[in-house]
Nucleic acid binder design. Structure first.
Length: 144
DNA sequence: GGATTGACGGTCG
DNA sequence: ACGACCGCCAATC
């Protein structure tokens, strides 16, 4: 059943747990989850975990108790995969949570995370250092 | 059992 | 600012 090493299974476990912490109506990125589980260099593996999210409700982590839909890519869009319909499915699931999803010029499904914010906004490591990115503190001043 | 793929992201050109 | 490359590693061919 579990053709993966114990270490890999622990990784899956950590990823699923982290994703479960994302509040409804908010989203985060694969890379962010990767950082949270202590492996910032493996955002792809986070995608692998979600891809193989068990459909069996009897499993401790399954596609019903793990809000996989709240994980998008760093571009703020729903990542395309083998079956485009799956991406659309994710968009529908997000809209059910009152998260606005718009279609880009290239047909990409953009999540308006700007209205809802990322989660978590501050990483534990950053908070420990007292570093709070708050918002883009650049000199652009493009908004507000 | 070796090679390729992929729900990503950072770096480099 | 955009595109090509590289790293990473379980799953799949």
């Amino acid at each position: 059943m579990a053709p993966r090493s114990d270490e890999a299974q622990a990784f899956f476990h950590a990823v699923y747990s982290a994703v479960q912490e994302i509040p409804p109506g908010k989203v985060t990125s694969y890379g962010h989850i990767a950082k949270l589980v202590g492996t910032p260099q493996r955002p792809r593996q986070v995608g692998v975990c979600l891809k193989h999210l068990p459909s069996d409700p009897s499993e401790r982590f399954n596609q019903y108790n793990v809000p996989w839909q709240r994980v998008i890519n760093a571009k703020g869009a729903i990542s395309l995969r083998s079956r485009p319909s799956a991406a659309h499915n994710q968009a529908v699931a997000l809209e059910a949570e009152e998260v606005t999803v718009t279609t880009g010029a290239l047909g990409e499904l953009l999540v308006d995370f700007g209205l809802y914010g990322w989660f978590p906004r501050i990483l534990p490591s950053e908070a420990a250092q007292g570093m709070v990115p708050s918002d883009e503190d650049d000199t652009e001043g493009d908004e507000e």
